[in-house]
Amino acid sequence: MRVVVTRPESSARRTAERLQDLGHQPVLLPLTRAIHHLKIAEAVLANPHSALAVTSAEALRVLSALGERLIPFLGRTLYAVGETTAKAAEAAGFRNIRRGPGTGAGLAKIIASDAPSFDAPLLYLAGRPRSPKFEDGLHAAGVPFVAAEIYEMEPIAYNEALIRGTLLDPPADAVLLYSRENARLFCDFAAPHLQELASLRFLCLSDNVAEIIPREFHRNIKIASHPDEDGVLALL
């Protein structure tokens, strides 16, 4: 299958290698690039907090870039949304990692069960844009927290000829969608060509991502049985 990979370049190449190993043809179309805010990360870490929370491996890339300045915080409890983010936390040197089930809502439930022992707010190291479900879950459970935006995902501009060539020369069979924002951007970019891609499969990380897909393509949606890359690739 000819599979469009929409992840940022930093992680898209690893996904492309996995697709090749599975016998597919990856087509790289990164829709966003990460902008890191190291000064914000360093400043918020210095404020009182009971534990850290991350819902994206990109946040760990920001923290890793702090180098030796991160060392004093590596013993703190870190709540990671899922296995991929937890592995990134391990690679960054964190030693006390609590793994979530792969969704922000699920991670909020785990944190809520631990919150009575907190002696300071939880520090959520977030990006922009992001899904509100993790923060909504914390608010609903009455968990005190501070959200700090330490990175942002900036959309990449492509000309129409490149988009058309990527999607239609030859026609793509599937697209991998890992976030609501990437699903929104892909559908915006692909809108002029979607009628020529009537059989394109939208392989989504979760129901939350799938909600963005236009109604006329709902029959083409597949949703991972577990919200991680293994789950998405199993849909191929």
Results as ranks from 00 to 15, higher is better:
V4A: 10
V5Y: 01
P8T: 11
A12F: 04
A12E: 04
A16N: 04
E17M: 11
E17R: 14
E17S: 15
L19W: 10
Q20T: 13
G23F: 05
Q25L: 12
L28S: 08
P30A: 07
E42P: 02
A43I: 05
L45Q: 03
H49E: 11
A51F: 02
A53D: 03
T55I: 00
S56T: 15
S64M: 09
I71P: 00
P72N: 11
G75C: 06
R76H: 15
L78S: 06
Y79A: 05
A86N: 07
E90Q: 13
A92S: 14
N96P: 00
G100L: 00
P101R: 09
G102F: 00
G104S: 06
G106Y: 07
L107D: 06
K109W: 02
S113F: 07
D119G: 10
L123E: 08
L125E: 09
G127W: 02
P129M: 13
P132Q: 04
P132S: 07
F134L: 14
L138V: 10
L138Q: 02
G142Q: 12
P144H: 12
A147L: 03
A147I: 08
A148K: 08
I150A: 04
Y158I: 07
A161N: 11
L162Q: 15
L162E: 14
I163K: 06
G165W: 00
P170R: 00
D173W: 12
A174W: 10
A174V: 07
N182F: 00
R184C: 09
F189P: 00
A190R: 04
A191D: 14
Q195G: 12
L197Q: 04
A198C: 11
L200I: 15
R201T: 00
C204Y: 12
D207Q: 14
N208V: 09
N208W: 01
E211I: 07
E211D: 14
F217W: 14
H218P: 03
I221S: 06
A224M: 02
S225H: 11
S225Y: 03
P227N: 08
P227S: 09
D228A: 07
D230N: 13
G231H: 06
A234V: 01
